[in-house]
Design a protein around this nucleic acid. Structure first.
Lengths: 222, 222
DNA sequence: GTCAACCAAATTTGATCAAATTATTCACGC
DNA sequence: GCGTGAATAATTTGATCAAATTTGGTTGAC
């Protein structure tokens, strides 16, 4: 009985700072906050409709994850990647993500593969429609859903942090060049999953990641 | 003139939450907080002699880095590693740290190598004297000092997080079995640095890390 | 054994103080 | 006389704290 909550006003179960963190993170990953654009803490309190402490805590967490940086003294912003930082991310992603895919391969059940196929279908639709937002969200979900099956929380959190650093730049690329030329090795990946071929799966992921990073690298040079 | 601060009471330059974060982090890395031991936020406010907000922010940051975990509901604690989590850390460390060593190799100057030799000498003294605290601090400084020369902030922050996860367990091992049997491939590493051999350096680091992890793995089985 | 009241701890808000940025004004030079 | 630059004042923002609210756990009574 104590779990039932009748009041519409406060169906609180998760703390505000958690909600604030998620909302701010999604803003960084999928859009509204462009790299370099400076934001004040108080601006975020009104933007996210939360008190000062929860916003503050969300910022600390995201700063630790590399999704935000404390710019000089007074403002925070989404970091703008340099070429050498992109190389670091490339190395880390190409090492860890194929490993997670490999680990996940053995544990994947038919249900999981169907779910991933569903997500992939949605991605194809988004690409065809030129819907950047939906492509980014689908791509993120595809990778994370797969990696979660590896049951490796530490590596997963590292990947999570890498996506927070990489996501904003990918978004900029999509916004500039549209959804064509974007990585779509998901078909190969799904085939490897169905065949239970861990090696092939991790190879497909590696190529998918390389393609995405090359895209950003090109855009960075310009 | 405005930068001069006469008042003894408040020589504030770095914010409290920064200081609190560092102090708490060092407590986790080098000692006082054992894995599994639950701590309350209020306990930390008195222990660290800081207000509630700074402590809260430090906890958020350390939680994001994996140094603390929100235990069920109500308390935080230093996570206790499972065997599979140790495998994850082993994979990540053995991938990233040799890479950083390799990157650093080309940039090392004589001054840096001398500094590292100095640290290594201090480690040897600590091992001979059985001084666990000093060994841990020296070992940490040796690795971090080397990696910093790679000029790769993202990979460095990932390593930083891995050490925060690994450190407490290493400490437990030292406390239980003393400072013998501990990794000391630093001599080989220094030789490789002097020879300018990046491959040999990264190999030495790899062996040093493997040795340390095996030590913890053994202790975990018991 | 279950329910309710109480207690302790976490969360959150609002207030206060300090610091920094911006705007305005005054002075000096061209 | 007009424009530029520096200095100071004002407003905005950040950091910290203390108090109030909420939540979860525990204990005692029925």
């Amino acid at each position: 009985m104590k779990n039932l909550r009748e009041r519409d006003e406060s169906p609180r179960k998760v703390p505000t700072h958690e909600i604030t963190y998620c909302r701010l993170r999604d803003m960084i990953l999928f859009g509204q906050l462009a790299p370099g654009q400076p934001v004040t803490i108080q601006g975020l309190t009104t933007m996210l409709d939360a008190g000062m402490t929860p916003v503050r805590e969300a910022i600390r967490k995201l700063t630790a994850e590399g999704a935000l940086e404390l710019q000089g003294n007074r403002r925070v912003s989404v970091p703008q990647l340099t070429a050498s930082q992109l190389d670091e991310i490339a190395f880390a992603r190409l090492t860890i993500e194929p490993k997670l895919a490999h680990m996940a391969a053995k544990r994947l059940e038919t249900k999981d593969i169907n779910e991933l196929a569903q997500i992939d279908a949605d991605i194809d639709q988004a690409i065809a429609a030129g819907d950047v937002q939906r492509y980014l969200l689908g791509n993120y979900r595809f990778h994370v859903t797969l990696y979660e099956r590896a049951d490796a929380p530490i590596l997963l959190s590292m990947v999570h942090s890498l996506w927070l650093r990489f996501g904003p730049s990918l978004r900029v690329v999509c916004g500039r060049y549209g959804t064509s030329n974007l990585p779509d090795r998901h078909g190969e990946a799904l085939a490897a999953m169905r065949a239970g071929d861990a090696e092939a799966l991790s190879r497909a992921l590696k190529e998918d990641i390389e393609q995405g990073i090359d895209q950003v690298r090109l855009s960075l040079a310009a």
